[in-house]
Amino acid sequence: MLQDQLNRDAKKSLTHNMKWWLIKILYTPCYLALAIIFLIALIGPWFVGDPLALSVGPRLTAPTLASPFGTDQYGMDILSRVVNGARIDLLAGLSAAMLAASIGMPLGAFAAYRGGVWDQVMLRTSESFQAFPVLILAMGAIAALGSSMLNMIMVIALVNVPVYIRLTRSAVLPLRDKDFVLAARCAGLTDWKILRRHILPNVAPVIIAQFSVNCAWAIQILAALSFVGLGVKLPTPEWGAMVRGGSDYILYGQWWVSVFPGLAILLTVLTLNQVADRIGQIRR
C-alpha cells in the first residue's frame, strides 16, 4: 500500500519535473530562437525556391511580396539563398566545433590528469598556436591547402583545438584531487576509466557551453574567410560569400543583397552566444 503510494508519488514528481523543464526551455527565448534557426536549416530549403536559379528577367530587385528579400545581381532569390545558407553555415560550424572538441577535450583532460611533462608540452603547443591571430592562421592554412569545404572545416576546427585543450585542462585540474577521484582510484579503477566516467561528466557543462560559443566562432570565421574571398566561392549560398557579393552594391542603394545574409549571421551568432550563456548559468 505504502509502497504503491510512494511509487505513484515518485512518478508524479518525475512527470511534473519534466513538464517544468519543458516550460522553462520553451519560455527561454534563446533556446526557442536556436530551435527555429535549426528548423529553418533543416526543412526550410524545401519551402523556398532553387537558390541557384538565375533569372532572365529583372536583377537586383528590391524586396517584394514575391521575393521578400529581393534578388541579387544574378537575379537569384535572396530569401532562398539565405535559407539554404543556414544549412551550409550551421553544418560547417557544428562540424568544425565538434571536430575541435573531440580533439581538444581528450588532450586537455589527459594533460591535466597526467601533469608534468605532458602538461607542459600540451600547454606550450597550444600557446604557440594561439600566438597567431585566429583569422590570420586560418587564412594562411586555407591559402596553402585550398578552399574546399572539407579543408575549411578542418582548418577552423584546428585553430579552435587549443581553446578546448586549455578549457578542459583548467576544468579538470581542480577535480584531479577531489575525494571522489581518490575514492575511485582506491576502488581499483584505471586512470582511463576515472577520466572517462568520473572526470569528464563533471566538466561536461563547461564544454557544452564552450561548444555553443565555438559554433558561433566557426560560423564567423567561415563567413569572414568567404568574405575576404578565400572561402566558399559565390554561386554557393554561403552567408559570408553573399555579404561580399552584395558589398559592391550597398553604396548604390541596393542594400538587401548584403544586409539579409549579414542579419542571418548576426542572429545566429547572437543566439548561439546567448545559449552558451544560459548553459553556463545552469552550473550554479
Partner: peptide, 24 residues
C-alpha cells in the same frame, strides 16, 4: 595494485559525500 585496491583492501574517507561523484 589496481587489482588489489577495492578487491582486497579498500578505504572509506573522512567526508563520505565528497567521495561520491556528484554527477552520477
Amino acid at each position: 595494485f589496481q587489482k588489489i585496491r577495492g578487491k582486497e583492501i579498500s578505504i572509506v574517507f573522512q567526508n563520505p559525500k565528497a567521495s561520491l561523484n556528484p554527477v552520477r
